[in-house]
Each structure stands twice: as C-alpha cells, then as structure tokens.
C-alpha cells in the first residue's frame, strides 16, 4: 500500500536514493570482468533498460581496459568505481593510481583508417566508443590518483 500524498517511486528512483554502486578492486582483466558483472546486475535490478545497461557496461569496460593497459601498463594497483543512478542517466567515476595521463586526455581520436582488407585497424576504438555514448567526459589528476568521470545518458528506450 502506497502512503497517500507521496507518489510511488520507480525502481530506478529507489535505487538512486539507495546510494551509489561502489567497487574497489585490484586492476586486471579478470577483475574488470567481475566488476562489470556485478555492476550490470545491480543496474538491471534497479530497473534500467537492457540498452542502458549495455551502454554502461561497454563504456566502463573500455575505461577499465585503458587503466589496465595504459595507466598500470603491466603493473597492478587499486581501482575505485562509483556509479550513481540519476534521473536521466548514470554518473560514473573511475579512479586509479597508475601513470598520469598525457596532456590532452581524455583523447578524442577520429576512427582509425579502414583500408580493407589487409590494412584494417585492430585497435584504437576504445575512446571513440566512450565518446559516442557519454557526455561530460573529464579527466583530472588528484595527488596520486587519475580520476575519470563521465555521464551516461539514458537512451529512453525500454
């Protein structure tokens, strides 16, 4: 029974009110995968559409792959992930203690050249994918930490 005078909250609003999804883990491909499984389950349980969950999973995967490959580059270290469910989208923040990113980060590269069939690129897609699916993408250095934040707008498709 819903109390009179207080409109019922949607699953998404309730999940947002319950506070952000937080994970701290040691960087690595397997840890990235485990984190994504946890976060996508939480987002689906919060009532997000399949499309929105898929977008979030892809963006977070690309960003965490970059941390493994470029920030820690062969070493390991802590990664903090915070995902806050808002009314119109997700606010995501990733922190790591890897190498400071170069100037001009986060990059905004054009898609790699495609000259089929043998000159096709096998990499260089990650930032393009992230840029396609996010707004307010920002990087900053805070002491020993790299901090990447972005917003993932909901697609409106259910």
């Amino acid at each position: 029974m819903v109390a009179q005078g207080s409109p019922a909250m949607t699953d998404r609003e309730q999940a947002g009110a319950a506070g952000p999804i937080r994970r701290r883990f040691t960087s690595g491909d397997k840890a990235t995968r485990e984190t994504l499984v946890h976060v996508t389950e939480a987002l689906a349980a919060a009532g997000l559409s399949e499309d929105d969950v898929a977008n979030a999973e892809l963006i977070l995967a690309e960003a965490m792959n970059n941390i493994v490959e470029h920030a820690y580059a062969g070493t390991e270290g802590p990664v903090d992930l915070t995902v806050t469910i808002g009314r119109d989208g997700l606010d995501c923040m990733l922190r790591d203690q890897g190498r400071e990113a170069p100037i001009g980060y986060p990059p905004d590269p054009p898609l790699p050249e495609m000259e089929p069939p043998l000159e096709l690129p096998e990499g260089g897609f990650g930032w393009h994918i992230i840029r396609c699916l996010t707004t307010d993408l920002r990087y900053r250095r805070e002491g020993a930490w790299n901090v990447l934040s972005c917003r993932v707008p909901f697609s409106g498709l259910d």
Binding site: E57, L58, A61, E62, N65, P121, E122, G123, F125
Partner: peptide
C-alpha cells in the same frame, strides 16, 4: 558482450 579488444580480435581473424 564484446568490447574493443574483442572487436580487434575478430578483425585480426579477418585479416
């Protein structure tokens, strides 16, 4: 689920 690493692997097979 396929990320850009997976995409790169599919492209590598094509090549």
């Amino acid at each position: 689920f396929l990320d850009s690493s997976g995409l790169g692997a599919v492209v590598a097979v094509l090549k």
